[in-house]
Amino acid sequence: MATKLQHPVTYPLSLDRVRAAVSDRAYWEALAASVEKSPGEVKSVDVSGDQVTVELTQRIPSDKLPSVVTSLVSGDLAIERTMSWTFSSDTAAQGTFHATVPGTPATTEGSFSLREDGGTTVAEFDGSVTVRIPLVGGKIEKLISQNMLTLFDAERDFTVAWDDEKG
């Protein structure tokens, strides 16, 4: 059974500035490198017209993982992640996200929408987390779901800082 994942994130930035960040490979390289103990890796950033697709590997250091996860995975946790945006207008975009942990029955997937209102952009994430492990799957789903909410907020903070730095 899947755990629902719903979360709004507000960026104090126009959609155009959010788009500029997510369209820039240097942004993703900096984001992936921001986990000092276990940096991630950007596999691809494809910008084609109004569409942006990003594939990356993010890592969570093993000392940050709960024991229920370390009992299943040794070492740092690698998360294979894909995000795609379609910028349908100057004030709206839609997208999808998908993440897996190779070698595990864990999947996170869903969609999101972005809309700009008065120079602020709101992203609405709607998805699910599925872990196909009898007895403990639901507990791990809840942990992943909580971590995804934290990730969405942390990426917003990173984007705002990136935008401030780029001026």
Rank of each mutant, 00 (worst) to 15 (best):
R59Y: 06
L13F: 01
D163Q: 13
E109A: 03
V122D: 07
A123T: 00
K37H: 08
T86H: 15
A92S: 13
A26L: 12
A123R: 02
S44L: 07
A123N: 01
G103S: 04
S84C: 04
S84I: 02
T159I: 08
R25G: 07
L143A: 10
K139E: 05
Q58D: 07
S88Y: 11
D76Q: 04
L143H: 10
K166N: 13
W28F: 09
E165C: 12
V9P: 07
K139G: 05
P39G: 09
S14Q: 06
V35R: 14
Q51G: 09
P134R: 06
F158N: 08
Q58G: 11
T3R: 09
Y27T: 11
G119Y: 04
S84Y: 14
V35M: 13
K37T: 05
S74F: 12
D164Y: 14
F158P: 12
D126C: 00
K43W: 11
G103N: 02
G49A: 10
G137H: 09
E41T: 15
G103Y: 01
K142W: 05
G110T: 01
R132V: 01
K142R: 13
A20Y: 09
G95A: 01
V47R: 15
V35Y: 07
V35F: 05
S74I: 00
A26I: 03
V18Q: 04
L151H: 13
P105T: 00
R25H: 10
L114N: 00
M148Y: 15
D157R: 10
G110E: 00
A26C: 07
K139R: 13
F125N: 01
V35E: 14
A78D: 13
A93R: 01
S38D: 09
R17T: 14
E124N: 06
V54K: 02
T57I: 12
W28T: 06
Q58K: 13
P61E: 07
G137P: 05
M148T: 04
S128D: 05
L135T: 03
A106C: 01
V42R: 10
T82V: 15
V18H: 03
V52I: 11
E80C: 07
V9I: 07
P8C: 03
V35Q: 15
K37L: 12
V42K: 10
L114E: 00
Q6L: 03
E80V: 08
D164M: 10
P8Q: 07
F152E: 06
S145L: 09
V101Q: 05
K142S: 12
E109D: 04
D63V: 11
F152I: 01
T82W: 02
L56G: 02
S62V: 02
R59V: 13
T3M: 04
G110L: 00
D163M: 11
T86F: 15
R81C: 02
S145I: 04
V9R: 10
R81I: 00
L72K: 08
G103C: 02
D50R: 15
A99R: 01
K64R: 14
S128I: 00
A33M: 10
G49H: 12
V42E: 05
T91C: 06
R156N: 03
V101D: 03
S89F: 04
S88C: 05
A161P: 11
A161I: 03
G95H: 05
R19C: 02
I79F: 13
R19T: 07
L65C: 07
A99M: 03
L114R: 01
V160A: 02
T159E: 08
Q146N: 12
K43L: 12
V45K: 08
A21E: 05
V42A: 06
